[in-house]
Simulated scan of single mutants.
Amino acid sequence: MFDLQTLPTTSAEATQTVSRSARDLTVTMIRATVQIDQPNGDGTRTVGAGFLLNAPRADGTPRTVLVTADHVLSRMPDSEARIGWRVELPDGGWRFDPQPLIIRDAESDPLWTKPGDRDIAVMEISAPAAFARDAIPIAWLADREAFDTTAVGPGDAMRTLGFPRGRSANRAGFPILRVGRIASWPLTPISAFPTFLLDLAVFPGDSGGPVFWTPATQVSPVHPCVAGVLTQEVIVQDERLRIGVVVHADYIREAVDLLDQKAAPAP
Results as ranks from 00 to 15, higher is better:
45 R>I: 11
87 V>T: 13
37 D>W: 02
27 V>I: 09
44 T>P: 00
41 G>I: 11
42 D>F: 12
28 T>K: 09
94 W>Y: 13
78 D>A: 14
54 N>R: 14
49 A>R: 02
78 D>I: 05
81 A>I: 10
47 V>Y: 07
73 L>F: 09
91 D>L: 01
88 E>Q: 12
96 F>N: 10
57 R>L: 13
25 L>K: 06
85 W>C: 09
65 V>D: 00
62 P>C: 04
99 Q>R: 13
33 T>F: 02
27 V>R: 07
34 V>N: 02
74 S>A: 15
44 T>A: 00
97 D>T: 09
56 P>V: 08
40 N>Q: 13
99 Q>P: 03
89 L>V: 09
84 G>C: 03
55 A>S: 08
98 P>N: 01
71 H>I: 00
46 T>C: 01
62 P>A: 12
38 Q>M: 15
29 M>S: 00
69 A>K: 04
44 T>W: 01
49 A>D: 01
68 T>G: 13
26 T>N: 01
34 V>D: 00
72 V>F: 14
56 P>Y: 10
55 A>H: 02
69 A>H: 05
32 A>M: 06
78 D>N: 13
82 R>Q: 12
61 T>H: 12
66 L>F: 11
64 T>Q: 11
77 P>Q: 03
83 I>H: 04
77 P>R: 05
76 M>Q: 12
66 L>I: 10
89 L>T: 15
25 L>W: 05
69 A>F: 09
95 R>Q: 13
91 D>Q: 02
81 A>V: 11
52 L>Q: 01
70 D>G: 12
93 G>V: 04
89 L>I: 09
88 E>L: 09
92 G>P: 02
46 T>Q: 07
89 L>A: 12
42 D>T: 11
86 R>I: 15
85 W>P: 07
85 W>E: 06
44 T>D: 00
78 D>P: 01
71 H>E: 04
66 L>Y: 11
79 S>R: 14
54 N>P: 08
93 G>P: 07
56 P>T: 02
26 T>G: 03
40 N>F: 09
64 T>E: 11
92 G>A: 03
53 L>N: 07
79 S>N: 11
73 L>A: 07
100 P>I: 14
54 N>V: 12
86 R>K: 14
38 Q>C: 14
77 P>A: 03
84 G>V: 05
100 P>M: 11
64 T>R: 12
73 L>V: 00
86 R>V: 15
85 W>Y: 15
36 I>R: 08
63 R>W: 14
96 F>L: 12
57 R>T: 13
38 Q>D: 13
30 I>R: 15
92 G>S: 03
39 P>Y: 05
62 P>D: 13
41 G>H: 08
78 D>F: 07
33 T>H: 03
80 E>N: 08
73 L>K: 07
74 S>V: 06
80 E>S: 12
38 Q>T: 15
97 D>M: 08
90 P>S: 10
29 M>I: 06
